[in-house]
Write a protein that binds this DNA or RNA. Sequence first.
DNA 1: GTGGTTGCAAACCCTTTGCACGGCA
DNA 2: TGCCGTGCAAAGGGTTTGCAACCAC
Lengths: 141, 141
Amino acid sequence: MNFSIEEIRNKLSEKGLKVTPQRLAILDAIYRSGDHPTAENIIEYIRHRNPNIAAGTVYKVLETLIENKLVKKVYTDKDVMRYDGILENHHHLYCTDSDIIKDYIDEELDDLLRDYFKNHKIKGFNINEVVVQLKGSFDKP
Amino acid sequence: MNFSIEEIRNKLSEKGLKVTPQRLAILDAIYRSGDHPTAENIIEYIRHRNPNIAAGTVYKVLETLIENKLVKKVYTDKDVMRYDGILENHHHLYCTDSDIIKDYIDEELDDLLRDYFKNHKIKGFNINEVVVQLKGSFDKP
DNA sequence: GTGGTTGCAAACCCTTTGCACGGCA
DNA sequence: TGCCGTGCAAAGGGTTTGCAACCAC
């Protein structure tokens, strides 16, 4: 997932958000990160080019991006938040041996689940989104 | 889910854990809670009968219970941890309007997913557990 | 008896907040 | 220019830790 700075700029202004160097840098960092970065990962990554960014700013920007649906939080069982720049429906592989969380995109699975829940309504609950967490381990190298 | 104190006592000693009033009370609180309690919920519940329990103790006991697979952490996008006493494979309904997380047990879905992933191996990843997060909203009363 | 548990309080760390300054539109 | 966004530092709150006292086995 690699967007040019120009594309990122457009994403921000489409949402009516002011385009600032901090927001560009944070979105860029999330997009470039193969994994699902924590706030700390993002801060560290950005500081190489932008040493003066404040941690508070990063959290505020992330909140703004989430509110504007440019970024999602990833559900984990750890106590630090992780962020994800992929917006289309996708799933996650959680490695129980490490802290790696990989994206898993599988449209066939999405179709299967859509069909399944079309025929198996849950009484009193309206489904918006179905996310599968696959927990296991990556092969050792 | 209602276990007698005697059953809870057995669960602990089967794992080689010392049976203490605190551990009994905490497991009992989790089992009795219909929802998925936070540490704070548990502390509050227990204090009615056991006013002297320390917060630190509750966290330590929870960690021990998780290590011994008597309790699970629930993945959320919030910054407080929640705990779950159901051990068999099950899924969760996340309400986007409230903080309610309900259990969703569906063996037919489990079978469907088991078949699906039997035929769709993920290269380099060994699946141990498949958990579905259903995000949406409960009907208003 | 004795090693694992608990209570307590302080430390920790991630995250949030308040406010004055700064910079995008 | 006006107002949103940022930097800074302090506060906040859930969780962890260290250690002495305790108690289940």
